[in-house]
């Protein structure tokens, strides 16, 4: 039996949902693999929701909003764009193929474009194959990664960076200095790297207390780097020493919040 991808689409009420309607009105056929969820604005889409959807086994997630300049709520679509950009980098770390996430602009009069996008995405996913998180036996490693990504996306640091991006680049920081885009992107990359690893460590040490050596082996990461993260996490109150064996401390996750 051929694999039929399961696609979840998040469409904005004012443009893309209407575009999907028009495809139907015009009787344009496209593959029946997509399930549409209506939001008022693509800017509503919290990255956490996308990661939950992947964790739930979706083969593909497509987000559709109004073309830039057309957003019913002025610039919600541009906020969505920033979130998806961050998400793609985050998803890439989990081992899940980032091509499974797509952002497209579809206007209310682009019924044909909507159908083409669904056709294209469906065929792309068919070739890519089922999500490692779908079916009865999800890949545990990737699932752990996606759950860590979800926790990362829910965390303060990345959210505040994404939220303040526009203001920092266009209006400037509290000193009125505009942050150059490249500098911002670098900060974002570093933050995604660091926070993702920290959340991976957190989830691992939630299952059982682990040493730096063990963490470094499981994460395939230099022990020095792991230790640096542990130090930060101790300061944050995320982990504490559970016990010491010889000269090796074992860390366990603490309940946060």
């Amino acid at each position: 039996m051929t694999f039929e991808p399961r696609i979840v689409g998040f469409l904005c009420n004012w443009c893309s949902y209407a575009g999907a309607d028009l495809a139907g009105v015009s009787r344009i056929s496209y593959p029946p693999n997509i399930r549409i969820i209506r939001l008022m604005c693509s800017g509503r889409l919290d990255p956490v929701i996308v990661l939950e959807t992947f964790a739930g086994g979706a083969d593909g997630v497509i987000v559709m909003g109004c073309h830039p300049g057309d957003c019913h709520y002025v610039e919600g679509n541009l906020q969505a764009e920033r979130k998806i950009r961050m998400l793609k980098k985050l998803v890439a770390k989990t081992g899940l193929e980032p091509e499974r996430l797509r952002l497209e602009w579809v206007s209310a009069s682009e019924g044909g474009r909507f159908a083409e996008l669904v056709k294209d995405f469906t065929s792309q996913l068919t070739k890519l194959g089922p999500s490692p998180l779908g079916g009865e036996k999800p890949d545990t490693k990737i699932l752990a990664g996606v759950l860590a990504a979800r926790a990362t996306a829910a965390d303060f640091r990345l959210r505040v960076l994404v939220g303040k991006e526009k203001g920092l680049i266009e209006d400037g920081n509290v000193y009125g200095e505009k942050v150059p885009e490249e500098e911002f992107d670098k900060t974002m990359e570093e933050s995604i790297d660091a926070e993702y690893l920290r959340n991976r460590i957190y989830l691992m040490t939630q299952d059982e207390p682990l040493s730096v050596k063990e963490l470094s082996k499981r994460l395939d990461l230099d022990p020095k780097a792991v230790l640096r993260h542990i130090v930060v996490m101790r300061r944050r109150g995320w982990v504490a020493i559970d016990r010491v064996e010889g000269t090796t401390p074992f860390y366990t996750a603490l309940k946060v919040g």
């Binding site: 939001l39 959807t53 709520y73 979130k83 959210r159």
Partner: peptide
């Protein structure tokens, strides 16, 4: 529009009738 809810770093903002719980349930 929901942009604040999707962006709040503390996840302190929820959107009536389009809560995270509801949207995730749909997904």
């Amino acid at each position: 529009c929901g942009v604040c809810g999707a962006s709040c770093p503390e996840k302190a903002i929820s959107m009536c009738h389009f809560t995270d719980e509801q949207v995730v349930a749909q997904a």
